[in-house]
Design a protein around this nucleic acid. Structure first.
Length: 618
RNA sequence: GCCACGGUAGCUCAGCAGGUAGAGCGCGUGCUUGGUAAGCACGAGGUCGCGGGUUCAAAUCCCGCCCGUGGCUCCA
């Protein structure tokens, strides 16, 4: 329940119009002089208990301002989580009744649009607001702390200087400025749909699914392929880095004592699922499963650092409705989540540093260069003061200025984290890779290791998402392609992620057989090639291939067959005005693509290799 | 929750001082057998988000609801 108390000379109100929740009311309005006016929002979870506490608050304030008249004024706009009308009216009546013992109480009607005039006395106690907490289930403690946490902002320069963010010269770092503006001012002056939303639909990657909850997407064959390749890639990198891949449940008992406490410390809203006897929440990361597994394992110092990895399909976060956008922010998303158990802070720092570099490398190989993102480090002041050299060594890795957010007090479970933030075409920022040093959860989950001295100790834990959410990586790649198009290039995805890598276009029907043969050879060599066998003009086929962002378009006609070559349009080297066409043999083409996609996972074509056999998905 | 905008053919959208529903793309059929970013012709395809009201008559006006997108959620 939220209440706003105003000590007034008078209040005057007039009922205008009913809403559908309107309470029976015959009068027109009222004027009450010298009253303590209490605006009230009854919220979800409020009970008579909550109302009684509110009554006590009101009594207290009324005593202080020496007022014997109270006006209870239902006012929905104090809260974004209102109770249903029935409960609200019930509790308001209840409060009216309780207050009537000591005060002259006037209650204005619920559920009407009302015009009102109020004259507030303006002395120090004349304006007060109070929040009376009921059974609050949706908002966790961490979310509230996040609101309260006081942040200090700095830029750590490549010269290892910590500059107040106000004093930093951003003129050479426009993207960092955008990121900082977004972070600190949280300002969004944009009122257009982000470019990647249009692209994800047009390229048949993903789309909204109206039959599901907001923030849950459908992925078409192209989208599934792209996601799948990214998932495979990040997973391989983490395993290569030394992690053990595991799989854990997606839902957990809400009442589980350990999990309950962790929920309180994580700033996210959960989906709740009703089970037979217990209620469950859907996981928002792989922490629970991995921590519970680790707690049971017998671990000694010889095993450390110990890494465990899971690709979470899905993680669920019930973000506020208005925060959801395209692939940027979802309620169900796929996240690579790796946890590293380390012996002490020194080992934690070492791993943190290595995983920072791992993240840089993963993003780079995916197609996102350090220029495409901005680095943020969030840290407690103590930890910074004690580890300056270490933080500076991180700054050296990319040799670019870093945004530092510093807190006096540790509000969260970590003492240090970094994020790589992508700044999109509309100047909005969102985090990709991140690593955190967690100093709390080993103890909470009862995770221990036996040290060389024979004693059981609690380790520290690193949380790492080397690429960030897979959907968000797709978002970043699409936005990046859009940005490159604005600079005159032809937008495209990296070749290893392009659903079709080579499109074969036969000039006439008599070339079709040869075209199919070539496509088959390519596919046998793990290159995704398809054939435009539709009855369309060559120009039309080239246009369609181009608007699908296909990296290599190979035309085959009499001349090519005679010479034993292909005429290939190379997208990367073309512009809308001038297309780069090269004659090359099939072997040359295969070599070039092999080269381009080396070390990357492969999956076959997501749809039939003959275009005439392929449905349009939307 | 609040504000703005939107929901019409598979897609993108026009029509809305009330009078039998339109375009482009896509799809189907036919002609054309093509040389690098949209060949030509014909055709099929619509409970105009849902419910109520006004009217001789509603996609169009009024009321309510649902869904979507963007922003806000007041930080004095």
């Amino acid at each position: 329940m939220k209440i706003l108390l105003l000590h007034s000379d008078y209040i005057e109100y007039e009922v205008k119009k009913k809403t559908r929740f309107a309470e029976q009311f015959e009068g027109k309005g009222a004027r009450i002089d010298e009253a303590l006016v209490v605006f009230v929002s009854v919220e979800k979870g409020d009970t008579e208990e909550t109302a009684l506490r509110a009554v006590e608050e009101i009594r207290d304030v009324a005593g202080k301002v020496n007022s014997d008249k109270i006006v209870l004024y239902p006012y929905a706009h104090l809260s974004s989580s209102l109770a249903d009308a029935e409960t609200a009216v019930k509790l308001l009546r209840f409060m009216e009744e309780k207050l009537s013992d000591d005060f002259e109480v006037h209650r204005s009607p619920f559920g009407w649009y009302k015009a009102f005039k109020i004259s507030c006395k303006g002395h120090p106690l004349s304006e007060l607001s109070r929040e009376i907490r009921g059974e609050e289930i949706e908002l966790t403690q961490a979310l509230k702390d996040e609101e309260k946490a006081k942040s200090y902002w700095y830029i750590l320069t490549p010269d290892k200087e910590l500059v107040d963010v106000e004093k930093f010269d951003f003129s050479n770092y426009p993207n960092l400025r955008k990121f900082v503006d977004y972070e600190i001012a949280k300002r969004r002056a944009v009122d257009q749909t982000p470019p990647h939303v249009e692209l994800m639909k047009r390229l048949e990657i993903a789309d909204y699914e109206e039959a599901s909850d907001s923030g849950h997407m459908r992925y078409y064959p192209n989208g599934r392929l792209i996601k799948s390749l990214l998932e495979m890639f990040v997973t391989e990198k983490c395993i290569e880095y030394g992690a053990m891949e595991v799989e854990t449940p997606i839902m957990y008992d809400r009442a589980h004592p350990t999990l309950r406490k962790y929920l309180e410390r994580f700033p996210a809203r959960q989906y709740i699922i009703k089970g037979d006897k217990r209620d469950f929440f859907l996981r928002f990361a792989a922490c629970f499963g991995q921590f519970l597994m680790t707690a049971q394992a017998t671990i000694t110092y010889r095993h450390l650092p110990l890494k465990m990895y899971e690709l979470t399909r899905y993680s669920f976060r019930k973000e506020q409705r208005g925060e959801l956008v395209g692939l940027r922010r979802l309620r169900a998303f796929t996240m690579p989540d790796m946890h590293t158990i380390v012996r002490d802070i020194e080992e934690a720092k070492e791993e943190f540093y290595n995983q920072y570099k791992l993240s840089v490398e993963v993003l780079k190989e995916i197609g996102l260069e350090p220029d495409d993102y901005e680095v943020a480090i969030r840290i407690t002041r103590d930890f910074y003061e004690e580890n300056k050299d270490f933080i500076h060594s991180i700054a050296e890795v990319l040799n670019k200025p870093i945004l530092i957010e510093m807190w006096d007090k540790r509000f969260f479970y970590f003492v240090l984290k970094f994020e790589f933030n992508f700044v999109d075409a509309l100047d909005k920022a969102s985090a990709l890779s991140t690593v955190q040093i967690d100093v709390e959860n080993a103890e909470r989950y009862g995770i221990t290791y036996v040290d060389s001295d024979g004693n059981e100790k609690h380790p520290m834990i690193l949380h790492c998402s080397a690429s960030g959410a897979i959907e968000r990586v797709v978002y970043a790649l699409l936005e990046k392609a859009h940005l490159s198009a604005e600079n005159g290039a032809l937008p495209m995805l990296p070749v290893w992620l392009s659903p079709t890598q080579v499109r074969i276009i036969p000039i006439a029907e008599r070339h079709l057989e040869k075209a199919i043969e070539i496509a088959q050879t390519l596919n046998e060599n793990r290159i995704r090639a398809d054939v435009d066998d539709r009855e369309e003009t060559t120009a039309k086929k080239v246009r369609d291939a181009s608007t699908s962002w296909i990296p290599y378009i190979a035309v085959i006609g009499d001349r090519e067959i005679e010479e034993g070559v292909l005429t290939v349009t190379v997208r990367k080297e073309s512009t809308l005005k001038g297309q780069k066409r090269v004659k090359m043999t099939l072997e040359d083409l295969m070599d070039e693509i092999k080269n381009e996609t080396e070390g990357k996972p492969y999956k076959p074509l997501p749809m039939h290799f003959m275009l005439s056999r392929r449905p349009s998905m939307r």
